[in-house]
Design a binder for these strands. Structure first.
Lengths: 247, 247
DNA sequence: CACAATTTAATTGTCGACAATTTCCACGGC
DNA sequence: GCCGTGGAAATTGTCGACAATTAAATTGTG
């Protein structure tokens, strides 16, 4: 299975609308289009040198991906997550990644498990070279969580985790500061999860993954508390739930 | 919080694109646009008396909702789920609805719980009047699961369950046949889940909800086995994971 | 000066047209 | 009958224009 929404080398294979979707999504994640920013279709269309029609199609998709919010006749705005909302994403992740691990324990092949073992070994080496203890997985294909979601063999779990949540996770991963020792511990938790999967222990795999994601949530929360005035937008009540019928 | 994508009484409040999204979604769920059917933009635009532009916007959203699949320069097709894929939806539901119940046990107000108790009482009466033992919750607002998702106070859990999964669930609920006694037992399970929520027992609420959804999965599966040649499309490998880079 | 009303400018939603691509159909060859 | 080819028809993706709505700027009044 080839990951659908990624680094297509042949640029003529994808439509303008899809390319815009990807590029604007990346700009949102990178902060080029910052949280809360109003999206002007004409300005963006001029910037990219395209007509507004494919741009609007891309915006509709970005809205479904929860990266922007839109209101009729008003336009779109880059989403801005409060800490509570980030916590909600972690809760949803915990549930789905737990289930993904359970299914992976039942469905993942020995070759896939071995491959992931090698990936974790690469991670360990990269981690050992860092002086700040941060544990990043820069390549999506080599991301532990991505591999588990794929190993679940559940089209929906994979699609939600690898496509819908992927941009969300990256969006506020920029706000995350690694607490001392957490990187190493996260890696160890990965190893234990994989052990449980290899043993076919679905329940243990789920428990360990849920603990892992919960620990990541707590770690994120702790790091935000440390820099509360800068890193949090507590005034941001999430507009997705109130905006649509505001009128 | 007003549910965003539903029965808006004032038709001028929503754009054409959004109205098309809703109507086409309903036609897919109702089977008017049957699984596997090719979607012709010009034909649909003529039928609805609109230009293709808002129609395309609606299709982009329907694609994100997993109700249609699209390929560049080829067009869109109504999705067709195999039994295995329906099972995957149940797995994802189990995870998220379990988490929703856990959060609801922590966050739901006494008034909300009482209101839901009344809803269940209405359900019991409706169930007692049925001779076929089928347990339908025709109104979304009065749907037990919807209420729990709202009670979770997690924007993302709610959005996924109440918006993204809602149409999917209805899509193959039409294929579900109630096995004798399952309707009554499902209602009883609802009551127990609500009891756990009222007691603030988050873990029990989650366990009971997960069991409930798993039982629904097994019930669905059993009903499909009973009518295998008619109700299953086993040849349908899910196109979402293979179609995009087919070219 | 502050606020309300009006005007102007910009943006948003939809339309229909055009170019590119795919699908369909007829015909010929084996 | 089946398969391949070519051309016409249909569809898809994008463009720019127009009408409706919103936002910003300007003017008038107390």
């Amino acid at each position: 299975m080839q990951k659908p929404a990624a680094d297509s080398d042949n640029k003529t294979d994808i439509s303008l609308a899809e390319r815009l979707f990807e590029r604007i999504g990346e700009e949102i994640v990178a902060g080029t289009l910052p949280p809360g920013a109003k999206i002007s279709e004409p300005a963006l269309a001029r910037r990219f040198g395209v007509s507004r029609t494919p741009l609007r199609e891309a915006l509709r998709r970005l809205e479904e991906r929860k990266l922007i919010t839109s209101a009729r006749n008003v336009g779109s705005r880059v989403v801005s997550f409060s800490l509570a909302e980030v916590m909600d994403v972690y809760h949803a992740r915990e549930a789905l990644e737990g289930m993904a691990s359970r299914l992976a324990a039942q469905r993942m092949s020995a070759a896939e498990i071995d491959g992931l073992r090698g990936v974790l070994e690469d991670h360990r080496r990269a981690l050992a070279e860092r002086t700040d203890g941060a544990y990043y997985q820069d390549s999506h294909d080599l991301d532990f969580h991505y591999r588990i979601a794929r190993g679940s063999r559940s089209f929906l779990v994979e699609k939600i985790l690898c496509e819908e949540f992927y941009l969300l996770i990256r969006l506020f991963r920029r706000r995350h500061n690694w607490i001392a020792g957490r990187g190493r511990r996260a890696w160890e938790e990965h190893v234990r999860i994989l052990d449980a999967i290899k043993d076919g222990d679905a329940e243990l795999a789920e428990i360990l993954m849920r603990r892992h994601v919960a620990a990541a949530r707590l770690s994120f929360e702790a790091s935000q508390r440390l820099l509360a005035p800068d890193g949090v937008s507590p005034e941001a009540t999430h507009p997705l739930l109130t905006k649509k019928r505001e009128k």
